[in-house]
Design a protein around this nucleic acid. Structure first.
Length: 203
DNA sequence: TTCAGGATGTACT
DNA sequence: GTACATCCTGAAC
């Protein structure tokens, strides 16, 4: 498991560093794992796209002020959940949004959560649109608002640098250098000058 | 393969 | 009442 200190530094750097790491989700007797392929940084201090812009503090945003590594999960567009990890020091509202994943362990269960069918039964369209969006990430990994505020270090949800750290078989495809790309964030057209910040990282 | 449009509930003004 | 860090469907090409 990555140490909590991984999340305590600069938010943009943390977003960059999270790409290629592994998200591990445990519930009941089930363990799911997936590689993080896409992230975005949100910084309340000066970022109009962030829910806590200008240190706004409400019932929803209070989780952003929690210690680093805390899970921030909220509902968007009335029907989808988004998963973030809180960054920087406690009291400093910032987070990294997990926008995309590549399944690595128990793919059949992830497919079941997402499409109510097994991996082998997915259509080409479903394979292409498996976990390539924040709402899809939460659906596949069985993440909802019940996890909002979960402290980092819980066995229910954490991040590790290698699958072996979670007792899972490694994925040889993941060896080698990362082809990391940088771009503008998505779906924040209202955020004025912040729409152009190059705070999105993806493979 | 791309596009437009609708679903849907909560937070905030 | 308005906006929202989205996803899916169906139709056209």
């Amino acid at each position: 498991m990555l140490p909590q200190a991984f999340f305590s530094g600069d938010t943009v750097e943390t977003a960059r560093a999270l790409v290629g790491k592994y998200l591990v989700r445990r519930y009941g007797r089930i363990t799911l794992a997936a590689r993080i392929t896409e992230t975005e940084a949100y910084v309340g201090r000066m970022d109009k796209a962030c829910h806590a812009y200008g240190y706004r503090k409400t019932e929803r945003t209070k989780t952003l002020y929690a210690p680093p590594g805390t899970a921030y999960v909220y509902l968007i567009y009335g029907m989808h959940c988004c998963l973030n990890f809180v960054t920087e020091g406690e009291g400093e509202p910032a987070a990294v949004l997990v926008r995309g994943l590549a399944p690595r362990y128990n793919q059949d269960i992830i497919a079941e959560n997402r499409f109510h069918c097994k991996c082998g039964e997915m259509t080409a369209y479903q394979k292409k649109n498996f976990l390539n969006g924040p709402g899809k990430v939460c659906a596949g990994m069985n993440i909802d608002r019940a996890l909002n505020g979960l402290p980092y270090g819980s066995q229910e949800l954490f991040v590790c640098g290698r699958l072996e750290e979670a007792g899972l078989p490694p994925c040889p495809d993941d060896d080698g250098p990362l082809d990391l790309k940088v771009g503008k964030r998505i779906g924040i057209d209202y955020a004025e000058e912040a729409v152009d910040f190059p705070w999105r990282f993806y493979l």
